[in-house]
Amino acid sequence: MLEIKCPYCGKRSQNEFSYGGDATIKRPQLGEEISTEDWDNFVYYRDNPRGKHSELWHHVSGCRQWFKVSRDTATHEIFDTCKMNEDFNV
């Protein structure tokens, strides 16, 4: 069971959280003229590295905040977590 440090609440076991996938995806601006390809990139295409992965988690059974986690997809090691408006330190 992963141990995830919620930037608001501290370390908690994985079963308090839900996963939100690739954190590098940027939603296009509302009303923006955008090609089908760019739009589909946003909807369907993901970073899928073996190694360091920037991802979203949601503290659903806690403070209900979404935040960012930098995690190794091969070892599951968590390098850092931070609030949405922050950047990772490592």
């Binding site: 069971m1 992963l2 994985q14 996963y19 996938g21 690739d22 899928n48 073996r50 992965h53 991802e55 995690r71 997809t73 091969a74 070892t75 599951h76």
Partner: peptide, 9 residues
């Protein structure tokens, strides 16, 4: 969650 580890939790 994304994983390339051939083992789980």
């Amino acid at each position: 969650y994304n994983s390339y580890a051939q083992r789980g939790n």
